[in-house]
Design a binder for these strands. Sequence first.
DNA 1: CGCAACGTTGAGTGTAATCAAGGAATGTGG
DNA 2: CCACATTCCTTGATTACACTCAACGTTGCG
Lengths: 239, 239
Amino acid sequence: VKTLHPRDGVIARHLRRVDLFGGLDEATLSGLASGALLRLHDREERLFERGSSPFELLILVDGAARVCLPGPGGGEKVIHLAEAPCLIAEVPVLMGAPYPASAVCNTPCTVLALPRATLRELAARNPEIPLRLLGAAMERMRELTRSLAEHSRRSARGRVASYLLGFLGDLNEAELRAAKKDVASFLGLTPEAFSRALSTLRAEGILEVEGQVVRLLDRAGLARAFLDGEPGGPTGGDP
Amino acid sequence: VKTLHPRDGVIARHLRRVDLFGGLDEATLSGLASGALLRLHDREERLFERGSSPFELLILVDGAARVCLPGPGGGEKVIHLAEAPCLIAEVPVLMGAPYPASAVCNTPCTVLALPRATLRELAARNPEIPLRLLGAAMERMRELTRSLAEHSRRSARGRVASYLLGFLGDLNEAELRAAKKDVASFLGLTPEAFSRALSTLRAEGILEVEGQVVRLLDRAGLARAFLDGEPGGPTGGDP
DNA sequence: CGCAACGTTGAGTGTAATCAAGGAATGTGG
DNA sequence: CCACATTCCTTGATTACACTCAACGTTGCG
């Protein structure tokens, strides 16, 4: 870990990139900036530990991290893949409750840390802030329920296709900012099963994989794979 | 649906049974009570629909319900089993965001509905309230992450054991307040797999099942079943 | 009194986990 | 700069588990 002390303008610029703070006025932003710390973390460094108490709001401004629960056999189950710019574990910091999971850097990460005291002070002056944090929490929740439903899908193929569709968005090329084994864990698969699913999709000419870069060749094909294993197929209605 | 208009005292008494409102002062409670509606729902009636916007906070004061996402083949995937007394979907109502899932009564339900306007008004006067709601949201989140991790467990046996341990708590007899097929769905299993898992545990003398009533005979045995299929078993350390 | 939904059991199949091995990539120390 | 170690990724063979399909007993409801 390495803490930087750049001019305030730098921090404010980082803050503006985060959706959460995008629309705030200059005064509030500089207030946030002056209370914040900028830190650099190496790969595999831990941002926080499950069970410990948060004393600052973490904002990932650059890099990627994974949020995971300790698995039974010493392994870990990834429950969230975070990519900058985003907030991490905003709910615990608001509540003062212990972290429900641990976070580890997948790449070198630039993190903005906002002490609870500063956050509360600013929240008191600007009621917009807690509402936005709550909104972020809501988003996280939606994502978790989606993951949960997704895990009930039968085929590995379908789950991988679903993930890639959400991951690629409108682009037809993107980089997995996590080890494949971690993506596999996130999807509730073994690394082998994930690798095989990718191989199949590649063999079908649907995509190309080069290291961590995924290139989409046939969006319709991926959409078809996504529907794989759906019992009823497209449900038209009951006669 | 049937709306009741009991004396205020009745509603306040219901409110006090909910953890969320347990510690509030009389004035606040009666304020809440006067703004609330008491409703009775039949079995299989829907409390709210995925996608629609919440205009009131729902408090389940009696009965049980399931929260579910529409499955692909017309089926449904249960993501939460709610038992009175508890709050339902507190985050959407706070944010004004659409419900991420639907809720259906498993049994006849008594529900207290608190309009958003009333809730906000009270929240403004008593800052304790939004904090408590946030706490409830936090709890829900913790549960979701737990479920997610649980779904990665290999064996149906282990998942069922895990669920029962949490479900029974300190008691050694409790009633599933949901159809077995819904519990199965919640656990990410088919009804058949769930039934078989229960059969196995019963055959081993670990528990008895009578309709929806589960009686625990061998807590240590259930704990052993819970550890079933753990790759490393109890990890002592590396030589 | 039938109808429908649920729950249980049986038999067969398929998919993903497991075990095993080799190759590629990354990072460390001489 | 190169040997070495470690981790990750991939592929193959095998197995085990849960899903599917099917039949039957039961319960509750119209």
